[in-house]
């Protein structure tokens, strides 16, 4: 912009579409959604089932169901974005030196980007029905 805001009122008008405000709102909205998504996830896989018995067959059976793919996509997306923004807050609080802060963020966004792609592939690139009736009969 040509002229920098010099008063609080000018700043508020100028930065009314501030991305920090959007992230602030997102943390609360996604947090609320994640309470239901994560509690459900923990209930299905740790309480309704013995997590110590989880194996390939169990996960393949889950991922062969459409509703699990959709449910886990929302879980993955909300959790990763909520998590990456929380880690960004932490980096900005504790990594004060600008160079180190920059590279910490580059590393964070790289890892999260790769894992978002990996997670989405895991959910959608395979039908997990290669075991056929053996999976569906469980």
């Amino acid at each position: 912009m040509a002229v920098k805001p010099r008063t609080l009122r000018e700043a508020q008008t100028t930065y009314s579409t501030n991305s920090e405000l959007a992230w602030w709102v997102f943390m609360r909205v996604s947090g609320l959604a994640l309470i239901f998504l994560v509690f459900g996830h923990v209930f299905f896989n740790n309480l309704a089932f013995n997590a110590g018995e989880i194996d390939y067959t169990y996960v393949a059976r889950r991922f062969s169901r459409s509703w699990v793919k959709v449910y886990d996509t929302f879980l993955l997306g909300f959790a990763m974005l909520h998590g990456v923004n929380g880690l960004r807050y932490s980096i900005e609080d504790y990594v004060r030196e600008p160079g180190r802060r920059f590279w910490a963020k580059v590393a964070l966004y790289t890892v999260v980007g790769v894992l978002l792609v990996l997670g989405t592939m895991t959910l959608w690139a395979f039908s997990y029905e290669e075991m056929g009736d053996a999976v569906r009969a469980l």
Partner: peptide
């Protein structure tokens, strides 16, 4: 979460 996504992706 990052570790969990990585290990579950091994089902691929």
């Amino acid at each position: 979460l990052l570790l969990h996504v990585l290990d579950i992706s091994l089902v691929m």
